[in-house]
């Protein structure tokens, strides 16, 4: 009998994804599914994926899901969680979704200390629409709508959402993680797990910002993209626990 040391978690359906080669969405999906399996909460997990590359996440996760309008996932999650306070509710949002069109929704969900978790995928670009500038696009980064590189004079500076939300009393646990190697993946998983556990304990709003690559729209090969994430993104978006109000000081 073959023992499987590593296999697909049961909260992740055995189907191919539409994600581009080397895209981190697949890794992050799997980590979430693993944690849900480990916490034995598949039966009462509800996920919300708004518009973005992960809009089809409901085809991949093996639990109840909502599709949502662009940016509105935190409002939808608020409605869901108020109806089912015992469920594990999470939103899965990209940077255009969360930091641009859905900025009001995420800020106020955090301010109200809504008891759900946001998984915020920051890859510094709009993926689904084909590579436009996001609020998190780095200075001088070229995109289809910043073809000469993002210029702070015209487009302002990239937003550090986790730090911004950390100023709100309602956010209790905020971390920025990456999944570009095994060590960081372990840390990322630990943070997402902690956020889910705090939610299940009835604590306030939590968000895990995951830095991710977008090889296709960055115009790089997947391994080049990993290097760019390490050399360009992490210095501007420092990794670590941004806020943990549950730590005993």
């Amino acid at each position: 009998m073959t023992e499987k040391l590593f296999t697909r978690p049961k909260s992740l359906l055995d189907v191919p994804t539409h994600y581009c080669p080397g895209c981190y969405h697949g890794i992050i999906h799997r980590l979430i599914a693993e944690i849900i399996d480990e916490l034995h909460v598949q039966d009462y997990t509800i996920g919300i994926a708004p518009v973005g590359c992960s809009v089809l996440a409901y085809d991949y996760f093996n639990f109840d899901m909502f599709g949502a309008a662009h940016g509105r996932a935190p409002a939808v999650a608020t409605g869901v969680k108020r109806v089912h306070p015992d469920a594990l509710v999470f939103t899965y949002q990209g940077d255009g979704d969360l930091a641009a069109i859905g900025c009001a929704e995420i800020v106020h969900a955090a301010a109200r200390a809504e008891k759900f978790t946001t998984i915020f995928i920051n890859n510094a670009i709009y993926g689904m629409t084909g590579g436009q500038m996001a609020p998190t696009t780095l200075l001088s980064q070229r995109t289809n709508t910043s073809p000469y590189g993002r210029n702070s004079e015209a487009c302002g500076h990239p937003i550090r959402m986790s730090e911004m939300l950390a100023t709100l009393e309602g956010s209790i646990y905020l971390a920025r993680v990456s999944v570009h190697d095994a060590i960081h993946m372990t840390k990322a998983k630990r943070c997402i797990r902690k956020a889910f556990e705090l939610q299940l304990q009835g604590k306030g709003f939590s968000m895990i910002e995951v830095l991710a690559t977008c090889p296709t729209n960055w115009g790089m090969r997947p391994l080049q993209a990993v290097e760019w994430l390490k050399s360009e993104m992490i210095p501007y978006y420092p990794l670590g626990i941004i806020k943990d109000s549950t730590e005993v000081k």
Partner: peptide, 26 residues
């Protein structure tokens, strides 16, 4: 019951979307 003053009408209707999809009268 739950009364929630949302940050906008857009948020309020999306909360309704969530609550309705979760099975509640809203």
């Amino acid at each position: 019951g739950v009364f929630l003053q949302a940050e906008s009408e857009i948020a309020a209707i999306n909360m309704v979307y969530g609550a309705a999809g979760a099975g509640a009268r809203t």
